[in-house]
Design a protein around this nucleic acid. Structure first.
Lengths: 112, 112
DNA sequence: TGATTAATTAACGCATTAGTTTATTAGTGG
DNA sequence: CCACTAATAAACTAATGCGTTAATTAATCA
């Protein structure tokens, strides 16, 4: 999987509220599939599939203890998308700077 | 559109390499649909649809000059996803801290 | 006006996604 | 062994996504 495919998989995995909620839950610590499913109206197989999607994107890792498959968060792909968005930070900073300048001008009318 | 739907739309829009490439091009400045389409093998209508997806996600704004519909980048949704990923930053920082500690221990074996 | 250019819409095919219910695998423990 | 729990697989439906080609809208310009 090249890095573009990896970004595809990550963005696509994050494009569903249930999957983002699962990640938020895992930020609190390890959890089983049933624990993860509990807050949702959805069936267990549906959650199982969402977990699979997250796992394929590398966002979660899984262990085995007895008949449980505990899930843990892996933040690596999140760091990758953070780095990706950082490409654009100069642009929104630039706009902010322009706004900042404008505000300063308004506050300090001695400038021309 | 609530903020979760907005995130859905943004992540989903970013989950395609052509759309990310279009954003990268627009980071250089305004461009028409034909200009945006030029680097791709895809048909023009296909690009037109990708642009529509980006526009619906709020990632681009469009103008009108004669028969052209120039596109410009709007970074607001990118800032939103940057803020979203920042939720998880403490976690990967924590892991980095743990790794850092471990490395220090290895370098400095006087610790117990 | 008629030809040309820019872009979108329409109509279609095909693959993928998201959910369901039912069935199955695999491990625990009486 | 049998019953129970955790989780996945199978099979299906409905909706969405991504691409195509052909047709259409809208503006320019000779």
């Amino acid at each position: 999987m090249d890095s573009s495919d990896q970004l595809d998989a990550t963005f696509s995995a994050l494009a569903h509220p249930a999957r983002r909620a699962i990640l938020a839950r895992l930020a609190q610590g390890e959890a089983t599939v049933n624990m993860l499913a509990e807050p949702f109206e959805m069936s267990l197989p549906a959650i199982s599939k969402h977990i699979r999607v997250l796992e394929n994107a590398g966002l979660i890792k899984r262990g085995r203890h007895a008949q449980f498959r505990p899930c843990t968060l892996d933040t690596k792909p999140l760091q990758d998308i953070a780095n990706w968005t950082d490409q654009y930070r100069p642009i929104w900073d630039a706009r902010f700077d322009a706004m900042d300048q404008l505000l300063n001008q308004l506050k300090d009318p001695h400038h021309d």
